[in-house]
């Protein structure tokens, strides 16, 4: 019997993928062709339409890993554990991509690929924690322990990340201030529109990938379990006859 949620994912994931593709292509068109170059940064600013949404999405990915881990420890639903594993892999991908695009942007703007800035430090450590999470999962044999230990790591990491950010910010700060803050938006519409559409598109892409990967992990485990059952049945019939 397949899980009801898995069936629902199977039915609806296509819509998320299509919406993500539409938003990303439309956002890229707006960002690359339709928006003006920046007054100070020139054409370089266009990578921001990819970099900022990637960074938002990687935070979203870790947030879902954190909340999923809490939920798993509470309910012990194996499907939620699969979702966490999927979210961790996506956190690694999106964080690595946002670090790479950030470095490409920083080279012409700050004249350096890398600098010890709080946001960069926090993202680098986020990448380390998420990769450590995936490594940890491969080293535990018992599936129940695997889920529990991984969830513990994700929760400790999630509590630690804000502290890492603030300590790095006290340590040194160079990053340009947030352009969207509580006090209002400091950008014009022709920049904000492609940025928000790209952000929406990448978040939808994340949800789509999360669904596909969760489904894949769940079905793989199901297959393994069925295989094990069949093998033991074959073994039993062989020994009894």
């Amino acid at each position: 019997m397949m899980n009801r949620i898995i069936r629902r994912i199977q039915r609806f994931k296509g819509w998320f993928g299509a919406a993500a593709a539409f938003c990303i292509f439309y956002g890229l068109y707006l960002g690359l062709f339709d928006s003006p170059p920046d007054y100070y940064q020139g054409e370089v600013v266009r990578i921001m339409y990819v970099h900022v949404p990637l960074a938002h999405t990687s935070l979203m990915a870790y947030a879902s890993l954190f909340l999923g881990s809490l939920w798993y420890l509470w309910k012990r639903d194996p499907l939620v554990d699969n979702m966490c594993q999927a979210a961790a892999g996506l956190t690694v991908i999106f964080t690595a991509l946002s670090l790479i695009t950030g470095a490409i942007w920083a080279k012409p703007t700050w004249n350096t690929w890398w600098t010890w800035d709080p946001k960069l430090i926090s993202f680098a450590i986020l990448l380390l924690i998420a990769s450590g999470y995936l490594m940890l999962r491969t080293f535990v044999e018992d599936p129940d322990k695997e889920g529990r230990y991984a969830a513990v790591l994700a929760i400790v990491g999630g509590i630690d990340l804000p502290i890492i950010y603030f300590s790095a910010e006290w340590w040194r700060s160079l990053h340009q201030p947030l352009s969207i803050s509580m006090r209002g938006v400091s950008m014009t519409g022709d920049i904000l529109l492609p940025l928000s559409i790209m952000s929406l598109g990448l978040n939808l892409l994340f949800l789509y990938m999360l669904m596909v990967r969760t489904q894949m992990l769940y079905l793989t485990n199901l297959l393994q379990a069925k295989k094990g059952r069949l093998l033991s049945q074959v073994h039993l019939t062989q020994t009894s006859s």
């Binding site: 924690i129 450590g132 990491g157 502290i163 890492i164």
Partner: peptide, 10 residues
């Protein structure tokens, strides 16, 4: 060390 050191950065 792989798990502990990143968390101990602060």
């Amino acid at each position: 060390p792989v798990l502990l050191l990143p968390l101990a950065i602060p």
